[in-house]
Amino acid sequence: MKQIGKRLLELCLFLFLLSIISFVFMKAAPGDPVRYMLNIDDVAISNEQIESLREELGFNDPVYIQYWNWLIRFFQFDLGDSFMTKQPVIEELASKIPATLTLTFSSMVVMMLIAVPLGTLAALYKNQWIDHASRIFALIGASVPSFWLGLLFIQFFSVELGVLPSMGSDGFFHLIMPSLTLGIAMAAVYVRLLRSSLLESLGQDFIRSARARGLSPKRIFIYHTFRHCLTPVITIFGVSLGSLLGGTVIIEVLFSYPGVGKLVVEAIIRRDYPIIQGYVLFMGLFVVIINLLVDLSYRYLNPEIRLKGADRQ
């Protein structure tokens, strides 16, 4: 418990640092958001207008005061308004987060559906055709740009066959292609990792002794091998959830899927600082929480770590 408390404290410190870094970076970034904001109308603007908007947004205050004001508002769940839409950042993000999470988890389901059976079979039938097939799948999967795979899907399913919608998010059918694209790309990495960690645990002493005790191969596999290799698999699971979120950005833009990734890319191109900042903090929080959860699940799955942790205290 003590360690969890320590981790939580670290988490807060980390987020605080992240907020400072993101704030400083924003201020140092090239490109004047005030000009971008006024330029959307394509009307000639005077320097006075620029100045008054600057004053209104508080851009003329010293940086540390700007940061302080921003921090106070942050604790009131107010991350400022988007420059472009004038909507509060927190609302913009909150309205897009469910779509991104849905995409992330459906991709994860696709990934699991491919990786777990293929990885298991590759380990059980080592150096047979299924193992070679999984190796080729992994090699090609690591070489194909995921967005191109998505483009190929669009070409085939939307343009040639006309069976699936190529953009937007309006129900189950809109999810199929984006999650297939992401899931397949991720599965390529996962298959080999699962295979090698399964093979490693198959060679362990306790597997041999279980076999000597006359347990059925099925039982050994489920209760001993699989459980043993869950630890590395869960680590990868945590890491891959992170890269899945990274991958969603590109896939969301590709399929015009209205999630946080698409939002932030548009914000970057238009220099909409508050949105970018909100995204950074949201991602920071999300990734750190996932790492914490992965850590906790280790303790649950691997008694060794639990005991070592207890020793130290």
Binding site: S22, M26, V249
Partner: peptide
Amino acid sequence: DAFMTFPDYIVAIILSGFLGP
């Protein structure tokens, strides 16, 4: 460690967000 916590793509996207396209 701080760098490693974040997935590559997220860091690269955020950094190019700060720096501009």
